[in-house]
Each structure stands twice: as C-alpha cells, then as structure tokens.
Design a protein around this nucleic acid. Sequence first.
DNA 1: CCACGGCCTGATTC
DNA 2: AGAATCAGGCCGT
Length: 289
Amino acid sequence: MSTSSITHRVEVPIDQPLDLPLTLESGQAFRWHEVDGVWSGFIAGGLVTLERLDGGLAVECSTDAAPGISDAVHRYFRMDDDLPAIYEHLSKDERLTDVIQQHWGLRILRQDPWECLIAFICSQNSNIPRIAQMQESLANELGETVTMGDIKRMAFPTPDVLASAGEDVLRKLALGYRAKYVAKTAEIVASGGLTPHALRDKSYEDAKAELMALPGVGAKVADCVLLFALDKLEAVPIDRWVRRAFEEWYLDGEELPYNELLAWAHKTFGANAGYAQQYLFFRRRQGQG
DNA sequence: CCACGGCCTGATTC
DNA sequence: AGAATCAGGCCGT
C-alpha cells in the first residue's frame, strides 16, 4: 500500500475544448469516478483527481508524481490534437457538424496501453456498465491500494499479477469466457512476448497485426487499443453502432466487411477518421438519425 | 476468404 | 414469473 498524506495541487491551463464527463464516460476509459464534480482516476500510473476550472484543470496528485504531472495530463488528454481544426475538417458533413456541436470537447484519450488492452478484451459481447464493473473487480481484487488524502482507489493490476492469478480466479471475477483471453494475454505480456507501449513506435498496420495475434483480440478490439492508447488516430473501431452509422447514413444500406468499411472511413474522413468514429458512435447510440 | 454457432454474465423484455 | 434476448466480438469449424 502506498500512502501519501501530503498531496500536490496544480492548475493546468488548457486552451483546447475539453468536456470532462463526456470524455471520461464516453466508453474509452472505464475507471473514472466522479463525486461533486471531482474525478478520481489514474494517469501515468499515479492516482489523481481532476476538477474542471475556467481555462484549465485543477489537478491533485502525490508529491512523487508532481514534477511531471502537467505534462502527463496534457498527454493523457491529447492536448496536442487541435480539436477546432479537426472539427472544421470533419464539418463538411452536416450530420457530423450537428454531433460535434452537441458533443463539443469530447476528446480521444491517450491511455495506458496495458490497461486499455485488457479493458477492450473484456468489452466483447458486453456493455459499458459491465465492462466498468469487470475492470473495477480486477483492480479491487488484484490491484495495489493507493490513497491520496481521503481518496482511496486500487491501481490496475500489472501483467505479472494477472498472469499468476490465472483463468479460474478471473472467472470468479465474472469475466466469463474472456477470463481465458485475459489470462493468456497477461502471460504473453508478463513474459516479454509483447510490450504494449512499444507498439506506439510501430506503424498502424504492424501494431495492429501484433495485437491481433493475442488471444481475444480481433480487428475491433485492436482498433480500440490503437486509437485510445497507441496514438493511431487512423484507427476506426467498427462496432455494431458504428457499422450501422456508416452503412445506413453514408452507404445507402450496403453491408460491407470490416476492412472495407475501414478503407471507406479512411478515404472519407482521412487522418481524423478516429475522431469521426467517436462522434458518430455517440450519435448512433443515442438513436439519432 | 466468408458463414455460422457457441460462449459467460447480468439487465431487460416478453 | 421464467424464458428469451441483447450487449461496443472472437474463435473454431
């Protein structure tokens, strides 16, 4: 257990659109908790709280993490993505123009690749509340306790810990048949067979191929990790919602295989295809046309 | 390469 | 009420 009674507070200025609840509850990340407008979660492995201020964020972290916390927050929220410019690029489409207005400040995150990988292996054939519950169970049962002031959270378990827990323990945490995938993937990562964060330095195609070699990782899960953790904004996770959005709204109802939809999205939305996906996903899930 | 059934679980629907 | 159905898919045949 790591405890620090002395915490560091800093105000991080932000000159980019950022809607905290939209971004943190958009189904990219599953472990942010909000109480009275204060969000607790982990950034760069450390427990932090975030609170939206005019012009920035109030951030609390441990004194250990304090020196780099401003940079870490900027990296986590991808503040280098010029959202207004991306909006302008995507707004050639009236439907996207509308959904951008409705979800101004919804950003793609740059998450921890290991945690993100496990979360999206767990996401298959499930739903957001249950994915969140599975991640919380993994942390509560197998993670390290971290406290900061009166905030107490469990860190996400390391590959070593998940690997040694094994399938049976993971099944007891209600992962279902995903337990085997998580256990095997954890073994591979723990033994050095794959280094999740190292995939950032590879091309989209190479990184995707490595991810898809893991058990429980297909094209959709791989694209989620590539987009939400590995800096690949050209990744377009095509779930049933996005598929319906593409096919019904843009392709006159034509049904296409995953890779053809992906190629179409790249041709249509270019380098910002990942952002287009995130906004259309929202609109489609809300049942809007 | 594509089609299909099976899979854990929990909430919702019928 | 208890049984189907569905939920941000993947794997094996």
